[in-house]
Amino acid sequence: MDVEKLEQEAASALEQADSLEQIEELRVRFLGRSSELKLALREVRDRESGMRLNALRQRLEAALEERRSDLEQVELQHKLMAESIDVTLPGEHFPEGHLHLITQIRREVEDVFLGLGYTIVDGREVETTHYNFDGLNMPPWHPTRSPGHSLFLNGDVLLRTETSPSQIRVMEAQEPPVYMISPGRVYRRDTPDATHSPVFHQVEGLAVDRGISLADLKGTLLHLMRALFGEKRELRFRTHFFPFTEPSIEPDVSCHMCDGAGCPVCKRSGWIEMGGAGIVDPNVLEFVGYDPEEVSGFAFGLGLERIALLRHRVPDIRLLWENDLRFSRQF
């Protein structure tokens, strides 16, 4: 048998083959059970010609395999090219859930304060006047004590008018230092309209430790406001009056819409009011048995709805309570 001739013949046949079927035919022809090579191998008696023919078989097998692999690639390409789709058609539908906007903001605030090492307290909503007013240094004649402003269950029990009573409960339950925030629902006798709701959410913050100052309050609130409204925000304090803090201030944040230049959102002032805050009044500290000469503290209260309305430009607070999916799915 002429090895060289056979090898040449196989090479040229492989070169001409252009389908996997032809490759299979060539395999049968050159390497099949009744092929010339197989027959020759069966006849081999000496070691030398055996080696020669086996080497040829290996070469032929390799050549065949190489050609098959090439042709497979070509065929795959052809197949893929026939499979074009419209990628602009929608994907398969998954129902997607959404957290309420207030929950999203509540978590953002919580995460800021967790990062600062605060605990989070879930205060109770039905409160006694003892915690809602007396403990907060609210004088007996204070207007929010009247049923005209607040929702009472009886003379001594009401729906809390702010999240502040949780301050008192926390301080009564532990020794200083205290670092906590308390988000939750509060209640006022307000008829619902675009900016009022009889039920809304506040977050209370309280830090009591040795040497707490207004500067600590300012830095803390700046940190929070930048987390909520962007790194460019600035913060200022305006003097104010609350019974439970002294000095009392209202923090203003530079307007996130106009960067302080003045626009309708900030009523052209460049600043937006964000809530109430101050140094915890010594009467409040004494009420819970803390020594105002030993420790001092700051406290603040912010409205979560206010943040939502301002930041997301929601025009009406009632949208937050209607749960219309067209609204909820935006956030």
């Binding site: 967790l114 090492g117 605060y118 670092y179 040497g211 207004l214 700046l222 200022r236 003097t239 002294e246």
Partner: peptide, 28 residues
């Protein structure tokens, strides 16, 4: 404390931005 407020309210813009100097952290 009420006199402190009288001083503070005139110097609010000068109050620096600091954070409490914590000796214990346990927020979670």
């Amino acid at each position: 404390i009420d006199l402190v407020e009288e001083i503070a309210r005139v110097h609010l813009d000068e109050v620096p931005f600091t954070l409490p100097a914590r000796r214990a952290m346990w927020g979670r």
